[in-house]
Nucleic acid binder design. Structure first.
Lengths: 219, 219, 219, 219
DNA sequence: CATGAATGAGAGTTCATTCAT
DNA sequence: GATGAATGAACTCTCATTCAT
């Protein structure tokens, strides 16, 4: 009997089996993150507990610790995924062969629209929940996340450079645009823009026009 | 000994007594708010519990409920006071006889500086206006707070009108400036501005200049 | 209506009322400690949770925190009470007018019997004085507890001095007797004495006799 | 490639293979125990979890159950090894051709020193961690362990007999010495001896001298 | 008005153990 | 034999709030 059975590890290579296990694990990790995302969207960051995430994911609370070392690690992973989606969104919106001004506008609008449509991810990204203060991420992870955030704005910066702006001015304008977008999002999110009878989208358009029009004459 | 003392309420007239009581009550309410403010400034919003506020105010937790119906009402009152201080700050910064452009810049800088220097008060606003609708605020209080926030921006709006801008454009530019300031504050606070190697103050100055310079030729 | 009611604080002096409240509080604290004691006796130290203590005392877990700042503070209080009882036991066993040798034996036996009959209280001491340094005790409390432990042995030391032994020798012999008692308790408790077919009581008696007989000839 | 390899079990005879497997298994069991020992020594009994042991041994927690049926069985095995080391220590300290009094002292000191230098093993041996109560060992194992503990004391007993003491008195004195040693260890471990300004080693020496000098005149 | 006590829910985390693979 | 995942119970402690006194 024993002799006739072929051991699994002999059929599949060990590596291949492990890869499969890792894939399964990654999928489940993803399901947990989905549940967390959903919970955050409904209850906000502060209102979401580990238990709630576990409940929605169909796990017991302790089981999550097989996938994440702490609640904050879930935050971090969530933020990471959010930034990936943001990058994808912005990149998809920018047609590479379009003129710089069009690319600038497309990137800005995509960036804005992403957070307008997923406001909870703004909370996540800017720690708006608990004081505007970075949370307990490892410095390494924090760096990685920051880099991805910058990446999402790089189409804006590139477009500005393509208009002939010197790099330092491009960075400066990118930052200003970034601030404008974030400000508009926060005001929109908290109902302050309505208070002034304005529309975030049109304010953003004006801002972009102002920047684009500001290009040097030979741009 | 004890029996011979006449109770306070028997010496003073009822109305006068009530007025006095109200004054005393208001003072104590103020002391509690002071303690709360202090606690927030030190510990942040999430780190401050009712117990902590009570402790700092020299009360037991239950006693606070004689002055405030809930923790959120304390937040509301605190935000109210914060907005008063903001108004005072901005008003004090604006010299009434200065030229419009100078008033515009002074008001914008004062607004920005207020929250830059008291970041916790920004948190308060974010907390209470979380999600689409304010939490734990009565509509009446909410209105009052919103009005005071607008008030704080009215020097900006007035200055813009004084440059000859039509009211609708003034409101529009005020909103844009408001968004820029909020965005800069958020980015500054979450360390994102440093990431771009920029300075919030100089970005703000540029923004104000752009708006001011944008005045119609005959302004 | 209002006028006719006499306020409580006017009937009783404030101080008196407070004293009453403190007494009630102390009683309830005592009931919690009783429940804790009972739980320890049944389930052992590691097996006793705050929840269990609360359950037995008829409280919710959180309620205990009105009386004790932490689980370890309960341990400390329990140990404190235990040491008081130990002191009372030993003191009661020693007849002041008895000859020194009788007092020595009585004190030693009382000390031994106390822990033989309440073995869990021995555990408490072991727990709190675990490793080289006490855990979870304030240094002040630790000192107080240590002092009370020494106090419980002072009748032994006094009796030895009364036999004419010099103080340094008395301290030395007290320590040796202390060690013997503790050793016997541990061995008895872990079933090791039965393993040798011996009886702790008679071994203790021999030890005391040896010490007592060791007195200088003119003692 | 894979197919052409002949499985180990086909090359070796069945019995030999089994023997080899057992040896491998024993080695790994030993490695786990080493890891456990290390963990106990560092973190104490209560601070050591199965996970921690597994981590240090390079296993996942579940894997340990291939070698031990429960956490307590690990305790038991650890205690067994500890007692072996104790026996070796004591035996090594006793020169067979030395006079009885010297052997007595050497054995006592070795026994004491063993636990003084490895205090965590005292916890293990006397269940000092969780109430002085035997833990969940099978009676058979418990018997075996008890026997090994007695074995460690047999040099003491032999030496006493060699001084001419009748066996029953020798057992009695051995037990008393055992208690003294354990008591001194516990007191030393919990800082109580320092409290009296004494030294465990010198107290032990006195005790041994008293016993040795107590030999019957014709011994 | 103020206290002290109590509630009840809930927080994040850890644990020994089990089991399919 | 070993893994990784999962359980389910338990842990201490904190919180906003209530209420008799």
């Amino acid at each position: 009997m024993e002799k006739s059975t072929t051991r699994r590890s002999e059929r599949l290579g060990e590596a291949r089996r492990r890869r499969g296990a890792k894939a399964v694990s990654d999928v489940r990790r993803g399901l947990i993150l989905e549940a967390a995302q959903e919970a955050f969207a409904e209850l906000g960051l502060a209102g979401t507990s580990l238990r709630e995430i576990a409940r929605r994911a169909g796990y017991t609370p302790g089981a999550l610790y097989s996938y994440f070392a702490s609640k904050e690690e879930i935050y971090g992973a969530l933020l990471g995924e959010s930034l990936e989606r943001l990058n994808a969104c912005v990149a998809a919106a920018v047609a590479e062969d379009a003129p710089p001004a069009a690319r600038l506008r497309a990137a800005a609008v995509a960036f804005f629209a992403f957070y307008r449509d997923h406001p909870r991810e703004l909370d996540l990204g800017f720690y708006l929940f608990n004081g505007v203060r970075p949370m307990g991420l490892t410095p390494a992870l924090n760096d990685r996340l920051n880099r991805r955030l910058r990446d999402a704005l790089s189409p804006v910066e590139s477009a500005l450079i393509a208009t002939g702006r010197p790099p330092s001015a491009a960075t400066r304008d990118t930052t200003a645009l970034f601030a404008q977008i974030v400000g508009l999002l926060v005001l929109q999110h908290s109902g302050r823009i309505r208070m002034f009878g304005q529309h975030a989208e049109s304010l953003l358009a004006s801002f972009v026009d102002a920047i684009a029009g500001d290009a040097p004459p030979d741009g």
